[in-house]
Design a protein around this nucleic acid. Structure first.
Lengths: 231, 231
DNA sequence: CTTTTGCATTAGATGTGTCTAATTTGGTGT
DNA sequence: ACACCAAATTAGACACATCTAATGCAAAAG
């Protein structure tokens, strides 16, 4: 069995690989997990011993296929839990991250299966993040575009909000922006701010940092119901 | 914050106090938690330092009111989780103990509140164990009688099954015995066995060890619905 | 081609929870 | 009252995850 700590390292490395590119440096991992560099050195040694990462001294690390599977398993736990907490226990999307961050390490495979079944095998969590399938096939995060990349006038649907700050998430949902929201870019101000108009008619201004975190696509033909549908 | 381990010690001590009587000896704790005596010595030192137990060297330990509150909190988590797993996730009563044993240490107060709300503030778990209230008042387990204490002919209602072995629990529920079951003692054999007849007419024989674990009372006037109602 | 500098690693310590082996204690039996 | 025994404690070690301080490497700057 992997310790919760080792799972955290693996998950962090996997995510860093998805964003930047491998190999991932110890200092990046240290910053992400808020630990010191020597701590990272000793942990990556252990992960490498277990065959979960490839390590080249003084270079950095990279997940092996086996490590990727473990990372996907944890991410699946996390996102299923987030979905479960919102759908079944009435949590707000701003609150679920922290709770899932802890529980993801402690639920059994049986729990995972049953939650997935109760939720009808969901494909996306409340933030629009794709939930790895039961078979743990790598997810292709590919063709996502950020709201900040779009010019004025485009009609767009929010697919994903890559922000975990509870206050910011609450602000966004209060303003009417969640995955599924359809909006139009009203103004791109030169001071690092974007203003969008929602279908309700209301306008919302967002700093670039937030607009970078909001992923969008051209809206699909109107679809039935649930709002987090994608593809 | 208490570590999960310290919570386990506290819970074990609290339960041992409820069964036998205080003070609880280190050797009993060691056996319960499957650790060695020196490990217990060092842990009870820490618990005593934190004011959660009273300790007298070479005698044993006893929970303080504060320790009792913590123990009740963990037991509340455990039993709420067991109830939740059966009612909302379709677990069998035989499977819930292990899962709850882990998760009880990792859910937030928010999670506890929401689960309790979704379940409509349940008072008993699937085994018939009372769930400590939100205010964590000590529970009075008092006047429970075991099936094994009853002679032939009595009509009884099962209120609680104090057994955690999955195979045994599955056997019992398959045989039709769960909290709420009404039965009659058909025969008390001198070889350490009791045979009961269920309302369905079927007979079930049980060794004394199991009959000791089944708590019963005189059946209430017929009550609406749920079967785990008590007093 | 050397020096510098930033990052990574090694060395050594700490706290937690555990163990085995050695010692101490308190009660029991004679 | 004494010796013995069972149980508890102390002593010392280990694995894990972390830290600070010291050292070593490798790539960039001169």
């Amino acid at each position: 069995m992997l310790s919760a700590k080792m799972e955290d390292y693996l998950k962090a490395i996997y995510r860093l690989e998805r964003d930047g590119d491998p190999p991932i440096s110890p200092s990046t991992i240290a910053e992400t997990l808020d630990v010191t560099a020597p701590t990272v050195t000793s942990m990556v040694e252990k992960l490498a011993d277990r065959g979960l990462i490839e390590r080249e001294k003084y270079k950095g690390v990279q997940t092996t296929p086996e490590g990727e599977t473990v990372a996907l398993e944890i991410i699946r736990h996390h996102r299923l839990l987030e979905t479960f907490l919102t759908e079944q226990l009435g949590y707000d999307w701003a609150e679920v991250h922290e709770e899932a961050e802890v529980l993801e390490h402690h639920i059994s495979e049986e729990f995972e299966r049953r939650v997935a079944a109760v939720l009808d095998e969901p494909e996306f969590d409340p933030h629009g993040d794709p939930i790895p399938s039961d078979s743990l096939d790598p997810i292709d995060d590919d063709s996502a575009t950020a709201l900040s990349e779009h010019g004025e006038g485009g009609r767009l649907e929010v697919t994903r909000v890559r922000d975990r700050d509870p206050d910011e998430l609450t602000y966004l949902s209060d303003a009417g922006i969640t995955p599924g929201t359809v909006l139009t870019v009203e103004e791109v101000a030169p001071i690092g701010m974007v203003t969008v108009q929602l279908e309700s008619g209301s306008s919302v201004s967002l700093p670039d940092r937030i607009a970078d975190a909001i992923q969008v696509r051209a809206p699909e033909a109107e679809q039935a119901g649930d709002g987090v549908t994608k593809a």
